[in-house]
């Protein structure tokens, strides 16, 4: 089953889901703050908060994926065996890589709020 703990794809894509939620919130904060309050400051504060939360979550998910990858014990990064171990390590490896990309994505998307201070 897709949901059972060790037989599931969800942890692998959890970090990109965090990225997606962060992206939607960032966009919504920017748009509504500019449209309704006429100032970017509330949006920038809100974005700082959601970015911190998102990065925290991604670090946590990435760490979990790193454990599942279990690279340090066997230095294996191919995972092409027909075993539960290989499948688990593979999902961990892919999840860890996705966590890295998601973290970069979150930081990228938050950067405009650092540099742009107005609603123009």
């Amino acid at each position: 089953m897709l949901w059972n703990r060790n037989r599931t794809l969800w942890p692998m894509i959890a970090a990109p889901i965090v990225w997606a939620v962060h992206f939607c919130l960032t966009y919504w904060l920017g748009a509504s703050s500019c449209a309704h309050l006429g100032s970017a400051t509330p949006a920038r504060i809100g974005i700082a908060i959601v970015t911190a939360i998102a990065l925290g979550l991604i670090v946590f998910l990435g760490w979990r994926a790193w454990l599942r990858w279990d690279y340090r014990s066997d230095q294996d990064y191919v995972h092409d065996g027909p075993t539960t171990e290989d499948r688990r390590n593979f999902l961990g490896h892919a999840g860890w890589l996705l966590a890295m990309v998601s973290a970069i994505g979150v930081i990228f998307v938050a950067l405009p709020a650092v540099f742009i201070r107005s609603c123009i």
Binding site: Y27, A31, A40, G105, V109, L111, S118, I120
Partner: peptide
């Protein structure tokens, strides 16, 4: 004509 803040998010992504 969207606020440049919004454009920035999409440019970054």
């Amino acid at each position: 004509g969207l606020p440049s803040l919004s454009l920035g998010f999409f440019s970054a992504a």
